[in-house]
Write a protein that binds this DNA or RNA. Structure first.
Lengths: 339, 339
DNA sequence: AACTACATTTCAAACGTTTGAAATAATTGC
DNA sequence: GCAATTATTTCAAACGTTTGAAATGTAGTT
């Protein structure tokens, strides 16, 4: 029972023996249209399953009511959870969302950007790929008057863009403070790749918490990893190498590397293993299945990051904020204590 | 430096003092257009950052080159991995993908469907929500000649639709056979919600493996859970209640419930705990962090499921397969042995 | 009967693109 | 030098919608 003549306004108009404009206005509930006419049109539209053609509307209205999102991937729960926040608020405001993954590949990111540009999205939310150094493909949007909000991963050096970020300094400060309050004096810090802009902020949070609480800092207790498992293991074994300066606690950049670290310490039967208390960024649901779970997690509130990004973007789209008046929004982290 | 006159074909035509059609044809590399003219047009288009308006093209061409995907959520790695398969093959063939989450809510699923219909997607891939009983919102697509492929979650009773499914029977058969080959005689089966159409297939895989290998079946060794943690615990404690009929192995419907089961058995210090070998569907990356990991996982190959879905959909779109000639594609699972 | 006032409907252009047909320009053959 | 051919460009309609302006219809007033 496939229908071949598409049900358009024109088609409805012919059926009802009235003009296309009357049909259009009736469906859009114009006050100048007679109530009885409206009823007839709306019934016919319903019965014939009239579905307005979004392309035609976009063309006419010069807007798409679509928000584009570009992010590295959908396997990281941070991103999928952030999408939830975006979607929620976007649909409430009559916008739809197109998600595009860059897979941390610049070429793919450029393709995604061009696709979204051709689709004339009304705004863009983007977490850049690890490779992104040049921003021409993203700058195009602002040049066409389409606002862009960078979230989480952003061009840190560039002040001339809108940003929504997790307050990773505050998160790391809080985590460190928590461990200090539990009596730890030797708190190790396992950082992420130095290229990622968060790495410094988190380290500063750590340092500042130590300082504010008069816990001496030791460079020996700081190491970095690039997320690679072997790299993590060598970093962690350095941290726990000196018996004179043995950490009793650990703050890690992200939970997966923390899990690698815990696993390693356990595998070598580290003598102090059972006394070490750990915290990582993430708050993965799998924590409940671990036998030696972290003592707490820094919850980055991805939904809230997403929500703040879309809220800012909608304000920019609606010109409640000038597109050149660059905003920076920080979303606080929350410490989740597991035991 | 925001540009206010949009760069359209008309704008380029005026700049170049030629007609809109020449510009259009030059950009689309028509053979009737003079080479030098093409060069001039293409250069101008590049310099002025001309970006064709997809809405206008869609309207003219009566197709969008967009594939819609509706799925329950993006937090389940099965779905995000399947998207990867879809996206990969779709972009290779010049299609873009719009993803929409139903959050297992019928109302949201209907909204998503209508949105995608208005966007005139060229095809739809859908994993239905748990609530979906009525399919009017999805049947609309076929009525408009837009092909729909159901994947994974599908209307099991309905033969008149295209389906791509994991071969869950084969997966469960293989898992059970593996345990039998390792010498187990008492293999428990922890099934998922009975409403989900896979539940039966998996159970049949289990039963048939037992039968084919002459291992006696015992109804006491079968229990079901609806994914709820308490429900899982009560199921698992039933399975491991009778000392006369104590399982030495367990096949579970999905890894999260398997993890709940393992955790419970460990927490009660079950005497046989260290001898129990388990297998679940999923192959989560977190397995490597567990202290008592499953002996193997049934990998459902989500990427391949996604790839098969998009391949079928493109064949339907290109009318290589008649839309009424309903297809059913099964994707085999693969047993991943962990130790 | 003529005029005003209002309610309702229709006209017509526009959005940015594509494309077959028609028009024009350039080249060739004689 | 002119018709015939071929190369190149332009015309014009179409896709499905929206919307201000214009047209039409209907009642009410004098």
């Amino acid at each position: 029972m496939t229908n071949n003549t598409p049900v358009t306004l024109k088609f409805l108009a012919e059926k009802l023996k009235m003009s296309v404009s009357t049909v259009s206005k009736a469906l859009n509930n114009y006050p100048t249209i007679n109530e009885y006419t409206k009823k007839r049109v709306q019934e016919m539209a319903r019965d014939l399953h009239f579905t307005p053609n979004k392309s035609a509307i976009n063309l006419k209205e010069k807007k798409s009511r679509i928000i584009g999102i570009i992010l590295p991937n959908l396997l990281d729960h941070f991103f999928t959870r952030s999408i939830y926040g975006v979607e929620q608020f976007a649909t409430q405001n009559g916008y739809n969302v197109i998600i595009s993954q860059s897979h941390d590949d610049l070429e793919k990111e450029i393709q995604s950007a061009n696709m979204l540009l051709r689709s004339r999205v009304d705004g863009l939310i983007v977490a850049i790929s690890k490779q992104t150094q040049d921003f021409a493909h993203l700058d195009q949007f602002e040049q066409m008057g389409i606002p862009v909000v960078y979230y989480t991963r952003n061009p840190s050096f560039n002040l001339s863009c809108h940003k929504v970020l997790g307050n990773t300094f505050q998160g790391c400060y809080q985590a460190t403070k928590f461990l200090i309050d539990r009596g730890h004096k030797k708190i190790a810090y396992l950082g992420g790749p130095k290229m990622i802009n968060f790495t410094h902020d988190r380290f500063n949070g750590y340092i500042n918490a130590l300082k504010d609480n008069e816990v001496p800092f030791s460079a020996e207790l700081v190491a970095y990893t690039d997320f690679d498992k072997e790299n993590t293991i060598s970093a962690i074994s350095n941290l726990f190498a000196n018996p004179e300066n043995m950490p009793t606690a650990l703050v890690a950049f992200k939970e997966p590397i923390l899990f690698d670290a815990i696993k390693y310490l356990r595998s070598i039967n580290h003598p102090n293993f059972n006394d070490i208390e750990c915290i990582g960024f993430g708050n993965t649901s799998f924590i409940s299945y671990l036998d030696s779970p972290p003592v707490a997690s820094v919850e980055e509130n991805p939904e809230s990051v997403g929500e703040n990004a879309i809220k800012l973007l909608l304000q920019l789209i609606n010109k409640e904020i000038d597109i050149q008046n660059y905003q920076k929004v920080m979303v606080d982290c929350k410490l989740i204590v597991h035991k």
